[in-house]
Design a protein around this nucleic acid. Structure first.
Lengths: 150, 150
DNA sequence: TCTAATTAGGATAACAATAGTCCTATTTTC
DNA sequence: GAAAATAGGACTATTGTTATCCTAATTAGA
């Protein structure tokens, strides 16, 4: 599998939601209800985002979360790393050396693949996940046609 | 996690090995021994590669596998798909619609991310995993410096 | 024709990671 | 003090991956 975890997916959805409602704090419950997500599980994502400083939180009865920074500065990679999901496409990208290490024919080419994958995620921003607008190049019509997206 | 499975990793290693030893059939046992992999598990990968037509096999005492096609035509994506690893970065890229489907703010931007990720794997070839040579652009010195690979 | 080495592949066990829930503590506003 | 919110530890269920075991079929060569 080559998939982002639900924890990451929920984090992106929550960040998207917070980006729209910038202003007063939004509670986890509101986000969960609006998006139809498990409140408990979503909370884990929000707490991770909090620890990484992508959102700030306020406790208490009028509390909730709000975005730190602007959507065009927050990359998908930031969010992935906040929920501490491992993005190493092979083990040796993140963990210590494997038994092959010395004579490994895989590590170097994989490193390059890895940096290309990383680039995709570091160069895509929360702003690219906003609703379509003329100014959102991410949704440029030609690009969509080129990539068969409707 | 965002990681290629061991089955894929073994498949790439095996393809790499077969690319070097083009000529007479190479047995799964030889590959497993040379690379220090589990023979049984490697066999699964080879059988998948066989089904997808990336290698051909010969049974019997002098049997083994050999590459079909040339390394510069076989992409990493081909290998990933051969071992039927799912490359959908989120569920809705490959499976049927989720409960959000109608009003989902995630699917469109994720589709674009998906095509960018796909491009990385379809544009990287087995030849790029060969040993470094002058002509191997994948190991271009500037690229390596740029990406901090040594 | 028999034997040994090989691929083919089903079944299943062991392990690891993800997803989700439950409960309690702490904070804050009213 | 009550209510509503975040914080987070502990635990369970589910799923996916990794690995092994076993048997069948194929083929070259003695």
């Amino acid at each position: 599998m080559f998939r982002l975890s639900k924890k990451t997916e929920y984090a992106i959805l929550a960040m998207q939601y917070l980006a729209e409602k910038s202003g007063e704090p939004v509670s986890a419950k509101e986000i969960a209800t609006s998006l139809g997500l498990s409140f408990e599980f979503l909370s884990k994502s929000l707490q991770s985002l909090m620890k990484s400083g992508l959102v700030s939180s306020q406790q208490g009865i009028k509390g909730g979360y709000h975005l730190v920074g602007t959507p065009d500065m927050i990359s998908v990679m930031d969010i992935i790393q906040a929920v501490s999901e491992n993005v190493g496409i092979v083990e040796c990208m993140t963990e210590s050396d494997c038994s092959r290490s010395g004579s490994c024919n895989l590590k170097d080419p994989m490193s390059i693949l890895q940096s290309k994958v990383n680039e995709v995620f570091t160069q895509t921003f929360l702003a690219d996940f906003a609703n379509e607008t003329e100014s959102n190049q991410f949704f440029n019509k030609d690009f969509k046609i080129l990539n068969g997206i409707n």
